[in-house]
């Protein structure tokens, strides 16, 4: 149930996530070295267009990637297919994207 288009979308989104993940972890480790508090971190991320775009892109890629991945697993485990599977894929994407977008706006918007 994974055609070429979905395959490309899942691999490209994985390629987008890989460098973002590395930057995220490296920055996080460096940032807490000096003992930054949550409030100090938020004061730097809030209002930052860069971090909004950075984590926004990650959330979009992760939602797409995970929705397609779960689609494969659900099809193989339950046999669900056709319209039901399409609806489920988009619903998973919608839920992940909504949750991720809430977190990103909370951390990066003033």
């Amino acid at each position: 149930m994974l055609d070429l288009r979905l395959y490309i979308a899942q691999r490209l989104s994985a390629m987008v996530m890989a460098p973002l993940m590395v930057v995220h972890i490296v920055v996080m480790i460096i940032a807490v070295q000096g003992g930054l508090s949550a409030a100090e971190i938020l004061s730097r991320t809030q209002g930052s267009v860069f971090w909004f775009l950075f984590y926004g892109l990650f959330v979009a890629a992760a939602s797409l990637h995970a929705a397609i991945g779960l689609r494969v697993i659900v099809h193989e485990v339950t046999g669900l297919r056709g319209a039901g599977l399409t609806v489920l894929t988009w619903a998973v994407f919608g839920v992940f994207f909504f949750m991720g977008a809430r977190a990103v706006t909370a951390v990066t918007m003033l």
């Binding site: 149930m1 994974l2 055609d3 070429l4 979905l6 395959y7 494969v72």
Partner: peptide, 9 residues
């Protein structure tokens, strides 16, 4: 081999 049952599965 690029359809829903193709090699990408």
């Amino acid at each position: 081999v690029s359809g829903a049952g193709g090699c990408h599965n």
